[in-house]
């Protein structure tokens, strides 16, 4: 036990930050021009979500479900697992999260939250869409290495949690997203990278949402 505790987080990281960023560069090449389509989509949701009807709400869930499945194959399997064997255990987690979204997309009562809950969800959406790439670019990631909206793990995990809040969904359905955010937080902590802010801030917002009566301010009851 004493020996285990003598290990620093950095000792458990098997790859350099430059190698990690290289996976994003390769993934972006593989994904092109999907990242631009995803960014436009994200912007449209941010601006128009309050005008969405039930059909569009369902489409939103379906798209996110498909994105989780795409990433389990695209980013995790094709690229990231080749430098980090632990990621193999997240592939089924991503698939499960993807199917949860697809299943939720068939629900009848996908009603947008209101008030502070809506605001919290939109903040997280903004974090993933705008703040994340700006933070990455300002901390010396090259443009080709930026993690694109919705189609990289951190981004979709944050938008998934945002969706949970926006539509008052049960938090249990989003345990896969939480687990990824914790994993990502630990990865960036071990690299001593500023990118730790994204999973870090997201997890703080999630904890506030879950532990405070914030969800009581929504006009809609959380659904099962």
């Amino acid at each position: 036990m004493e020996e285990l505790l003598s290990y620093r987080l950095a000792d458990l990281l098997l790859f350099s930050e430059s190698t990690y960023l290289r996976q994003f560069e390769r993934y972006n090449q593989w994904l092109y021009p999907g990242q631009y389509i995803a960014a436009i989509y994200g912007l449209l949701v941010l601006v128009f979500i309050t005008r969405f009807n039930l059909f569009l709400n369902r489409i939103l869930f379906m798209i996110q479900g498909l994105c989780w499945l795409l990433m389990s194959y695209g980013f995790l399997w094709q690229f990231y697992q080749s430098i980090n064997w632990m990621v193999l255990y997240f592939i089924p987690v991503f698939i499960i999260q993807g199917f949860i979204f697809l299943r939720l997309g068939f629900k009848q009562n996908l009603i947008l939250a209101k008030g502070r809950v809506l605001f919290s969800g939109l903040i997280l959406w903004f974090l993933a869409l705008i703040f994340n790439p700006v933070l990455e670019f300002s901390t010396q990631r090259n443009f080709s290495e930026l993690s694109c909206f919705l189609l990289t793990p951190d981004s979709i995990a944050v938008t998934s949690v945002a969706t949970m809040m926006l539509f008052n969904q049960k938090w249990l359905w989003f345990i896969p997203s939480f687990s990824w955010l914790v994993f990502s937080l630990l990865t960036y902590l071990s690299m001593e990278s500023y990118s730790v802010l994204i999973p870090g801030m997201s997890l703080i917002i999630i904890m506030i949402y879950l532990l405070t009566p914030l969800n009581r301010f929504s006009a809609n009851k959380p659904t099962l």
Binding site: L13, L14, F15, S16, T19, R22, Q23, R26, F79, S82, I83
Partner: peptide
């Protein structure tokens, strides 16, 4: 070769 050669399936690297 700890970290330095763990570059996975990236042919270019």
């Amino acid at each position: 070769s700890w970290r330095s050669f763990n570059v996975g399936n990236d042919h270019q690297t």
